[in-house]
Write a protein that binds this DNA or RNA. Structure first.
Lengths: 343, 343
DNA sequence: CTGTTAGCGCTTTCAT
DNA sequence: ATGAAAGCGCTAACAG
């Protein structure tokens, strides 16, 4: 292994001078710098990060904690975070909590041990607060993405759950729907709660019924029990059956459509479906599902940017909050006006 | 920050004893161990990895270099690698080369500097050999995944390109196809070359024509110029037009179908399509594309396993090679027997 | 502008 | 079974 001492010896300077060169100190004569740089190149010297970190407490490693890397939303977040990190000279450590608090906790310990410079985290649930507090204790900056946690003063990149939900529901209302169901994720996740709340508020605002039988949460944001939920909805008597379903994330939306099709329900004629969050169009056809598509890449990119600013202290002290709008794409799954208003 | 000295002082032992405890040395009395462990817990001590690495040269960080994290194949690889890594006490650093040699090179330098324990790498192209040699020079173990590189003695997890390609093509031949085209990735990537070769061999074996006009490479394995390629194929005179297309990866397959549909070509009646590698079924319908689906998760999982064995020296010296079979799913895009054999 | 000294937190080596 | 000393590769702080 080549060290600064090898370089120093060969260049007839002190180790400190070499250190200054690799750190781009300006207090170095052009001559010395060039001499040292030549030798660094010649010997193929690469600085040892462990030694650096031991002193500087900086690792140049950013960590991204997500709940499911198989979800295209998070894939895209990862891509954004990685791009920004690389651009700023950081590397990205990937952690997959699997929506699991224990796993998240284990990862946080590892991160503290490794010494990450900062963490971009989509918390597994409200209980993540305890895990996040550990970061605070070790003075590791973090940025919350996608999922808000109450009473936590920190930088955040969130989705505009309220506006987006309202847009989706009002779209349905405009089409004449009066009985609208929601298939949601677990309520100990902030995004679910906010979408739930906005859903109820919008219905109330428009004088529509908020019926308990139309409100469902699946165990997970992933596969889970959507099939059962849909069966439940279909078992309701005809006049109590919802004419539209609002699915609060991409997987829930897809599974809702699949379940309805299995029951031979016509979409959108019998039941319309709208969805929060889009899905990459890995299909040969035009996309089918009406969706509010989130700028997922920017969750990662802007999150990483804020995190780095926080790490490098190039931003104001006060916590910042970025709320990203989603864009509504109206597609076939909802494109049908209810004419018979008694229905 | 809590250090071993804080623990040592409070426990009335030397720092060395604390070090032995956290390293599970067996030369410690049960009494001392328990006393120290209690204080470690009480003070919430977490060892400093930088200091450890500086001496031990171990970071417990595995790196995964892939060419495109937006590709579901690699997402799944990442998931597998991450699961195995965590299970064995490692963390996973993610690197996205974007099929770009320069970016790959930059990442390799960063990895060497950070001091990763090993690298799982899907090389950007044959030119990656130079980048990989740097790893060898720094004695960093690596495992090649997905893409083979000639004259490189190392552990590998590869796809069975020959068998899988043959199966796909013979499936087409059985259906009566005689004019089969290939839409491939760049030929400086091993997987493309092997699939190309197997494609030609299979046709020859069955006495079918291998026509230059039916052989195409796109610039990238991603979006790229599939539309143009398909247009080219369609411009051929009717009796020279292929009746089937073999797309050599998931994105190429999807884009081929999209391009054909744009031209109002009926699939599979006018032209059948088969595809190497599957696509997650993010759609509401049954999957359409006939595909040889790869066990992508295992590329990561087994690759990480081999890598860790190599790092920890718990395996024989000789390079090992795992060849994973793909599974053929025959679907609508090819499900049509050509009856008019003159066609 | 350049060099010297000390020490980051931990483990290796040797001693007891 | 436990401890003392030395040093991993680098940089902060000071000196010149």
């Amino acid at each position: 292994m080549v060290t600064i001492y090898d370089i120093a010896k060969k260049a007839n300077v002190s180790a400190m001078t070499v250190s200054r060169v690799i750190n781009n100190s300006d207090k170095i004569s052009k001559q010395t710098r060039e001499k040292v740089e030549a030798i660094i190149k010649e010997l193929n010297y690469i600085p040892n990060s462990s030694a650096r970190s031991l002193i500087s407490k900086k690792t140049n490693i950013l960590s991204l904690m997500i709940t499911d890397i198989a979800n295209p939303f998070f894939t895209s977040v990862a891509r954004g975070a990685e791009d920004k990190a690389l651009q700023m000279g950081y590397q990205l450590l990937l952690c997959n909590s699997d929506e699991n608090i224990e796993k998240e906790s284990k990862y946080i310990d590892m991160l503290i041990s490794t010494g990450t410079d900062g963490v971009l985290i989509a918390p597994a649930s409200d209980l993540s607060k305890k895990n996040i507090h550990k970061l605070t204790k070790y003075k590791i900056p973090f940025v919350l993405i996608d999922r808000y946690i109450s009473d936590l003063k920190c930088d955040q990149v969130l989705s505009d759950n309220e506006t987006t939900t309202r847009k989706l529901i009002e779209h349905l209302i405009e089409l004449g729907h009066k009985r609208i169901a929601i298939i949601n994720g677990p309520l100990d996740i902030a995004t679910s709660r906010e979408r739930h709340q906005a859903f109820c508020d919008t219905l109330t605002l428009h004088g529509l019924e908020v019926n308990k039988n139309w409100i469902h949460q699946s165990e997970l944001f992933r596969d889970s029990d959507v099939t059962d939920i849909v069966s439940n909805l279909l078992e309701l008597p005809a006049e109590k059956r919802p004419t539209a379903i609002f699915a609060t994330n991409n997987f829930l939306g897809l599974n809702t459509v699949k379940a309805l099709k299995k029951h031979k329900i016509n979409i959108p004629e019998d039941i319309a479906v709208v969805c929060y969050d889009g899905v990459p169009n890995y299909t040969e056809n035009e996309p089918f599902l009406t969706a509010a598509e989130q700028p997922s890449y920017n969750f990662g990119y802007l999150g990483a940017q804020m995190l780095i600013e926080r790490i490098e202290n190039t931003c104001p002290e006060v916590p910042r909050k970025i709320v990203l709008p989603a864009e509504l794409y109206i597609r076939e799954s909802s494109n049908y006006t209810i004419k018979d208003l008694k229905r």
